[in-house]
Design a protein around this nucleic acid. Structure first.
Lengths: 234, 234
DNA sequence: TCAGTAGACCTACGGTGTAGACATCAGTCT
DNA sequence: AGACTGATGTCTACACCGTAGGTCTACTGA
């Protein structure tokens, strides 16, 4: 098919020994690449090793488990979420964080399940530090704004609870067949019996036009106005 | 060790042929049992078959895939969530639904990842009907209360986004070592460097006493008051 | 009576995570 | 220089996984 020197049909994703040593960072970066491209369930230790041009067992020098590897992926993504704890306008900063989080989630949709799910397996304090950084920084931001620690924690929880829910929601708004013009058909809603699901079928058009940014903004409005009225600072 | 007739040390979780035929319901019930007891990753087709006293391949008569099996589990749990679309007080009904959802999640903590994650794999309209029932019923409830379909959908999304986030949050508040009295030690927070995580360490006591019901109630207050002010009915 | 069918079973294939032993090599201490 | 040490990579092997394909059996309707 192609003009590669030795006629090996298999895809060689990496040279046999990509010069330097295998670092944890390189391993995680490559793993993230695979997950982004093919989804989590396509990531196996063997596939990752193949992509790195190494022996599968090498990986265990840099991650105890496959579980630890997944945690590492979630960490590398979450570590990209920056918070400015010195921002004097805490509401604006939380909004900005929310949008950055959404952007991150949309950039790595296949990682979102890990992002919301992996923490369940590890108690808070044992989590990798990159995961705890945003929490610490938001606590700092809110403390500086005059909230008590307890209130700051509540706000953090409310915000991230909402954010996790939102990106999960947004990611599952998948259009089944983009070619079809009729919304009912496009979404496959016609398969549902009209008598049992009248409202759902009636909302075909609304379901077909989902605006994630607007939806997020709306939710943030509700959340933040609710917060400022029920939990005043200082 | 025990007085079983033939000295088989292996655990026999079910009689070889539990009288009747294998139904989808029985299969899903048994699968749910395994997941509740041992977690999702311990559920294999072979293990499930063993528990049912059947051949692994029998299962494929009642579920196309393992993925379909997981969807089935999520469905059986979510189908237990009841909504009364005739309740004249829609706010109260949504509160009740939220509490029932939380209760369900705490009863089946190992299923929560499936609950929030499986929908990502299946477009809305192709999802099993049990999964769509709550959505349809809440749309009915809100339409009856005077909301437009679009607003009803927004409210549903906001509520379930928040709910998913909340239960994910609540489930990861796990105490590492209940015997230890010092909160800092109990949560393992002492492992974090003080200079990098001062706020987090300072909140040890607050973190150690997490009241899920109160937290949910607070969130609902914010959400529902926010909703009623920004999105009036009729 | 016989064809058709649905359910259960068996075998087998290619994949998985990872334990354990060994090889290689850099750096350090004597 | 030589020995020792620890980190890193490699190889083999094991138990387990999801499931394609075929076969046996029991029941159904014609």
């Amino acid at each position: 098919m192609d003009a590669s020197p030795a006629g090996r049909a298999l895809q060689e994703e990496a040279e046999p020994h990509p010069d330097g040593k295998l670092t944890r960072e390189r391993m995680l970066a490559c793993a993230l690449e695979i997950v982004d491209r093919d989804g989590v369930e396509k990531l196996s230790m063997r596939a990752l090793a193949r992509a790195l041009g190494r022996d599968p067992m090498s990986l265990y020098r840099h991650a105890d488990n496959k579980a630890a590897l997944l945690d590492g992926i979630a960490e590398t993504v979450l570590a990209q979420l920056t918070v400015d704890p010195t921002d004097p306008d805490w509401v604006a900063q939380l909004r900005a964080v929310a949008h950055r989080f959404r952007h991150l989630a949309l950039t790595h949709p296949h990682v979102v399940p890990l992002l919301v799910t992996r923490p369940l397996a590890t108690p808070l304090a044992l989590r990798p530090r990159g995961t705890l950084r945003p929490l610490e920084d938001i606590l700092a931001l809110l403390t500086r704004a005059g909230f008590t620690g307890a209130d700051a924690l509540h706000i953090y929880r409310a915000l991230f609870g909402f954010l996790h829910g939102h990106v999960l929601n947004e990611l599952q708004e998948i259009v089944e067949n983009p070619d079809e013009t009729d919304d009912l058909l496009r979404l496959g809603l016609h398969r549902l019996p009209i008598k049992e699901f009248p409202h759902l079928r009636g909302l075909a058009t609304t379901l077909a036009t989902y605006d994630g940014t607007a939806e997020l903004e709306r939710g943030l409005d509700i959340l933040l106005t609710g917060l400022t009225t029920t939990t005043p600072a200082t």
